[in-house]
Amino acid sequence: MTINWRRFLLIGIPMIWLLVFFLMPFFIVLKISLSDMATAMPPYTPNYTPEAGIQGMVNLWQAFDLENFIWLLEDNIYWLSYLSSLQIALVSTLFTLLLGYPIAYALARSPEKWRGLLVLMIILPFWTSFLIRVYSWIGILKTEGFLNHFLLWLGVIDTPLAMINTNFAVYIGIVYSYLPFMVLPLYAALEKMDDSLIEAALDLGTTRLGAFWQVTFPLSLPGIVAGCFLVFIPAMGEFVIPDLLGGSETLMIGKTLWGEFFSNRDWPVASAVAIVLLMLLVIPILLFQRQQEKAQEAAS
């Protein structure tokens, strides 16, 4: 019996924490997304209090409606920011992959005694503040910033380019911030690959490039998939990067949600936006989880 009691505690403590602070909040978000806006504090009605009893529950239920979601459908801004988030996340994931693959490949093929240091150097920026890293690009990209100075000095351009407050700046910010997330899973996949597979391909008559496309690339696909998920999913809901680097025309759902909540103080609409974003992400998140579980099983 004592062993079962321990087991109960072991499972129970983290389980209860996650149920209360992770799962339950989602139901609250769902509930509020079905409520109406009110100017009081908290800014939504109805409020359910246990004293109201069963009748209170019924009233509560009757007061719910899909108004906020209809509102989302009717107002173009939400549609556009969903679509634009999707586009920005996809494009920047692709760029991150294109930049990250050669780096991960070079890491995996670097001399063994250097590898630990090089991997550490890839991870190190990830440990320093995200906000600071995004901030550092403002100085580079702004009209009188470093990049424009440099390009003018080179003579490539005559007048400064407008880079800050554009989607281009957002792409750079996402690629820069999430590069380690792409490189690490790719590196893990490439590093464990047996060198003799490439040698076997060469031995059987392929060129180096042929060996890459027929052997290395297909075998690194799990790493590519994991890396793309790890960049795409958080990029979809990104707030800081579009807010600091993007312009007024940069629509991203994270920014819209933030605005609804902090500027418009419309909690029900902010909740409805969150619910829709979550529904859009549920499929990639579930796919990613499946893949992680499979990888764990394969490792054990």
Binding site: D194, S196, L197, E199, A200, D203, L204, Q214, V215, L219
Partner: peptide
């Protein structure tokens, strides 16, 4: 052609 110790099957 070579037959590898690890077989190196793709």
């Amino acid at each position: 052609n070579m037959m590898f110790q690890s077989y190196a099957l793709f």
